[in-house]
Structures are given as C-alpha cells and as structure tokens.
C-alpha cells in the first residue's frame, strides 16, 4: 500500500519503537546500523563519505577526504567567508548568523563553492586535457542565472599575484595518494594552466580535483566544500564574539563617497 506523504530516500531507514511511531528504535544509513554498529567504530570522515556516497570509503579515500578537510577547514581570517562569520560575531549576532554568513559569502565564485561546482562540470566534460581546458574554461563558465556574471574561470584566483605555497604544499601532498588522477594531472599541469588563464590556481581547484578523484558529482562537491570550510569560520566567530566589535577592523577612514549631495 502506498504511504501518504512519504519521504523517499536511498540513504536512510528507520524502525519505529513499538510504543510510539514517532520515535525510532533503529536507524540505518546506507544499510549500516548507525547507533548499533557504526557508532564507536566509524571515523567522522568515513561517515561523511558514507552519507554522501552511500558506500564505505577505502582507506585511501578516507585519507584523501580527511587531508583535504584539514587543508580547507580554516583558510584564515583574511578569507572572505571567515571574515563574514567574524563580522556577524563582532556585532554580537547569533552563532547561526555567523555560519549563515560564512556559507553565503563562501558560496560564490571567488574561491567559493560555486567555483568548485562549475569547475567540476567543466573538468568532467574536458577531461585531463590542457587544450580542452583552454577551450572550455572560458566558454562554459558563463552559464549564469541568479549567479553574477563570471569575471574569471572557476578554480583560479584573479586577485593573487602568485600561487600560494600553502596551495602547492596541499596539492603536492594530496596527489601522492592512489587513485588521484585529477590531482596528479592538476599538479603536473598547474603552471601551464596558470599561464593559459593568466592567474594562479585557487584552493577551489584543488578541492574540485580531490572531489572528482573521490568520484563525487558537482553538486556533492559544492555541498562538501561549503561544509568542510565551516570549522574555521566557527572558531574565529567564537573568538571574535568575545573580543567584540571594537577589536575588529572597521576601516574607519577608508570609505570614500563619490556622490555626496553635501549637508542639507
């Protein structure tokens, strides 16, 4: 018999308690008993992979996702998403306000989650080919609706003069693992790609490569990039909330109004 208003999912199943249909006695995630089997055995990163892919990761996949997670968990207080979280905290807003701010600002096309999404789509179509990237990076990245018009190809940093040593360290480390064809190709061709585009690589490209090596699709990659970057935003927000608004940049004399009608 069909169930009214059913939630259909390939991920999650619940067995109700005999006493109350609204209380679960047992929960399965991708077929695993979450509280009777996984809890105490599975690592957080393994579980994260399981929730997204509905299969247990191999040790190599766990290590890759873990190490990527470490690399992007906290990009420092200069990162716009983290600045947004700190800004909400400086004003004394709620914890959720800080994370909402980090997600909103980290969602975009400046080393943001949309860059990860768009690059993963382009990469899937272009494959590991510098020539195909040359063609598709500029042509395929303009499909915008609610998103502002693109100013640069996804995965690159239009404001930086050089590729950061921290990014190169991350890429060099991550591509040493097994089944890392996208990361290895990106590492090998980084300079050529940068020369083609005229700007250095951004962390969003490293994340896109790792997600493709983990066989995630673009939507999953976009989600995970948003999620994995939250720890830094959260902890900086906690610190800034305590420091308050006076102990935070206000750029006091740095706003220049170009169309001032003058005093009434």
């Amino acid at each position: 018999m069909a169930i009214d208003d059913a939630v259909k999912t390939r991920l999650w199943s619940e067995t109700p308690a005999a006493e109350d249909d609204f209380v679960a006695r047992k929960c399965l995630a991708a077929g695993y008993d979450v509280y009777g089997d996984l809890l105490g055995q599975v690592g957080w990163i393994e579980y994260l992979y399981l929730l997204f892919m509905r299969n247990a990761p191999t040790p190599e996949q766990t290590k890759l996702l873990n190490d990527l997670g470490v690399a992007i968990a906290c990009l420092g207080p200069r990162d716009p998403a983290i600045q947004a979280a700190m800004t909400a905290a400086a004003a004394g807003a709620t914890a959720a306000s800080s994370l909402i701010a980090a997600i909103a600002v980290g969602a975009g096309q400046f080393n943001g989650a949309r860059d990860v999404h768009d690059l993963m789509l382009i990469w899937t179509e272009s494959g590991n080919s510098v020539d195909a990237w040359k063609k598709n990076l500029f042509q395929k990245a303009g499909n915008q609706t609610i998103w502002p018009e693109r100013s640069h190809p996804p995965g690159f940093d239009p404001t930086a003069g050089i590729c950061s040593a921290t990014l190169i360290q991350t890429l060099t480390h991550l591509c040493q693992g097994q089944h890392t064809a996208h990361l290895q190709w990106l590492h090998t061709h980084r300079v050529a790609l940068q020369d083609t585009v005229g700007m250095p690589l951004a962390f969003s490209a490293v994340a896109a490569a790792a997600f493709l090596d983990l066989e995630l699709d673009a939507q999953q990659g976009e989600m995970l990039f948003l999620l994995l970057r939250l720890p830094g935003a959260a902890t900086f927000a906690v610190e800034q909330h305590q420091r308050g608004w006076k102990d935070y940049p206000f750029h006091k004399n740095k706003l220049i109004l170009t169309d001032d009608p003058g005093p009434a």
Partner: peptide, 14 residues
Amino acid sequence: IAALAGATRSTPAL
C-alpha cells in the same frame, strides 16, 4: 556581509 557576498560573486539572496 552583504557586500562581501557581492564581492565574492555569491548570489544577492544569499
């Protein structure tokens, strides 16, 4: 925060 979202080319609604 709204300005940062614009400067990072996120969506206006976000």
